[in-house]
């Protein structure tokens, strides 16, 4: 049996030809919509594309700086937590020294002195443990890993250097252990030495307060820069988006323009056949 050839009606053929012509155009449009952007490659609009890319890149660079800043904030907080705990330890040491002043026996004073030395050792341990991600702001500035430079902009030209200060008991805060400056000497309690120790403890507290306020100051600088950076990132992203995103307002304006153009008669609808016209005129 002979095969029937597949025939297309003239209407279907017209459909197909028009569809083929429109197809490539529709593909471009759909690609734009899929990405939500009207400029998808450098070929569409080179200037807008590369400007948008530059904005996006700077926003990305700044975002990584912002992450560094939050890490710096955590570092400062770690140091501040250390300082607060050291202050508590110093208060404990001070109460031990005060008790030693009024101790009845040298034996009692010696026991208190041992406890006092233990507290001083704990201060050093606390200092050692106050680091965050390898940087410790409670170590002497000469020690490695005691400073951190927080970079604010993408080039790293604007920055803030966080410098450590020595918070260790003897070398940093000039506290004196009870063995070095004997609380009990010659079979008697040395009031003068103990009082010297108390004065040293008071001075240490003052030093810690000063350092704490320096940290707070740095913290507020970093926080301000963080907010600024976030704002900048948003501005850059908006800028890039404005250059490349499909714009509904623009579409509205285009549609209005098309409406006007069609009304002026460049596209004619009056090709309806006589039959169709007479049918539609009844409505």
């Amino acid at each position: 049996m002979a095969m029937q050839p597949i025939t297309l009606t003239s209407g279907m053929r017209a459909n197909l030809v028009s569809l083929q012509q429109t197809n490539s155009f529709m593909e471009v449009t759909q690609k734009r919509l899929a990405s939500g952007k009207k400029v998808n490659s450098a070929l569409d609009d080179p200037v807008a594309y590369f400007t948008a890319v530059a904005h996006e890149q700077r926003a990305t660079d700044l975002a990584s700086r912002k992450d560094e800043m939050s890490e710096a904030v955590q570092l400062v907080k770690a140091a501040d937590t250390g300082i607060e705990s050291i202050k508590t330890l110093i208060a404990a040491a001070k109460s031990l020294a005060t008790s030693a002043l009024s101790a009845d026996t040298t034996a009692a004073a010696s026991t208190l002195a041992t406890q006092y030395d233990e507290v001083l050792d704990q201060i050093d341990l606390m200092v050692a443990d106050s680091g965050y991600k390898g940087v410790n702001l409670l170590k002497a500035p000469t020690d490695p890993g005691s400073t951190l430079t927080v970079k604010f902009d993408e080039t790293g030209q604007s920055s803030l250097s966080l410098q450590g200060f020595d918070a260790s008991a003897v070398t940093g805060l000039s506290l004196v252990s009870s063995t070095t400056s004997a609380w009990v000497s010659g079979g008697a309690i040395s009031t003068a030495n103990i009082e010297a120790a108390i004065t040293a403890l008071d001075n240490a507290t003052i030093t810690l307060r000063t350092e704490s306020s320096k940290l707070a100051n740095n913290l507020s600088i970093i926080t301000a820069r963080q907010e600024f950076t976030q704002g900048m990132i948003n501005v850059l992203k908006d800028g890039a988006a404005n250059l490349t995103n499909a714009d509904m307002n623009e579409e509205g304006a285009n549609m209005l323009m098309l409406q006007t153009r069609q009304a002026l008669g460049t596209t004619s609808l009056s090709l309806a056949s006589q039959a169709a016209q007479s049918v539609l005129r009844l409505f």
């Binding site: 017209a14 028009s18 529709m26 449009t29 579409e251 549609m255 596209t267």
Partner: peptide, 19 residues
């Protein structure tokens, strides 16, 4: 059909989100 495709083309060009 010819008219239809030209109208559609104009609309999609003016407002790609109608695609």
């Amino acid at each position: 059909t010819r008219l239809y495709w030209s109208l559609v083309r104009d609309v999609v060009q003016a407002a790609p989100s109608t695609v």
